[in-house]
């Protein structure tokens, strides 16, 4: 067991805690913040089932983005779909191999390339399109750099210098069961260490960055509301309090 392995073990426990805890805090904030008015972007579905379908189309096919900009859509969908394939492939490190995972391995393997390609396209836009260049902060560039570095270091391990994946699996298996980092810890390959360090960094910044768009979209009132304001009265708690107390202004309310 090396010192580095212990450090990485602690790092991944911390990163997981921050990722899960941070997302839970943010999602609770979105959940608890009222939406006082009906503001779906119309035409909008008139039933809850319709809303589920609308959200599905947005989340899976990026429908609005497709309408907006075909090039951007292509890079975005390429990256996100590839990321899913890569993530599915990576689940082998946390669960026992099964037929589905065996079947998915080659897809996940080559999706690494399309993922990096998509990211490269997205990054190129930040330099080449003057409008996108203007709105990009340093963090927007770094986020893409981080993802590309994760992708490239991952590809290196698949196609250039193989690492002992069984040992990596044992390490994460140990972490999952609090079994103290496996018997042997992590392989001492620099690439796997870089790859894992960057992944941990990504997990840590997830809840404090724009990556919150992933859970956030489900809370977007313009996309998740049913268009039925005439049929069903929609009112938030704080607005109802104005009515109950017969007041016009919030600062007149008795607490």
């Amino acid at each position: 067991m090396t010192f580095v392995s212990i450090l990485y073990g602690l790092l991944f426990w911390a990163a997981t805690l921050i990722l899960v805890g941070g997302v839970v805090v943010k999602v609770r904030q979105y959940w608890n913040t009222p939406a006082p008015l009906k503001i779906p972007t119309t035409p909008a579905p008139v039933t809850q089932r319709g809303v589920v379908w609308r959200m599905f189309r947005e989340v899976v096919f990026f429908q609005s983005l497709f309408r907006s900009n075909k090039t951007l859509w292509l890079f975005a969908i390429l990256f996100h779909l590839s990321l899913w394939l890569v993530l599915i492939r990576h689940s082998r490190y946390f669960v026992d191999m099964n037929d589905f995972l065996v079947f998915m391995q080659p897809f996940g393997r080559y999706a690494g390339f399309t993922m990096v390609l998509g990211l490269a396209g997205l990054w190129a836009r930040r330099f080449l399109v003057d409008r996108v260049r203007y709105i990009s902060a340093p963090s927007d560039h770094l986020m893409l750099a981080l993802l590309i570095a994760i992708g490239v270091s991952g590809l290196m391990m698949s196609f250039v210098t193989h690492t002992d994946v069984t040992q990596v699996k044992a390490f994460f298996g140990g972490l999952l069961t609090f079994g103290f980092f496996g018997d042997e810890g992590l392989p001492a390959d620099p690439i796997v260490l870089i790859h894992l360090l960057l992944v941990a960094l990504l997990m840590i910044i997830f809840p404090i960055s724009k990556l919150m768009h992933a859970p956030g979209i489900f809370f977007s009132p313009t996309r998740n509301q049913v268009d039925n304001p005439r049929e069903k009265r929609h009112i938030s708690g704080w607005a109802l309090e104005l009515e109950r107390q017969g007041k016009l202004y919030l600062d007149e309310l008795k607490k």
């Binding site: 913040t33 907006s68 919150m212």
Partner: peptide
């Protein structure tokens, strides 16, 4: 306001600066 309007809180957080809106 961000405590009373979910739209504001969520919209301030989740923009990824993709630029889809920039020419609209």
């Amino acid at each position: 306001l961000k405590g009373r309007y979910r739209s504001l809180q969520v919209f301030l957080d989740i923009c990824v600066k993709c630029g889809a809106c920039t020419d609209k």
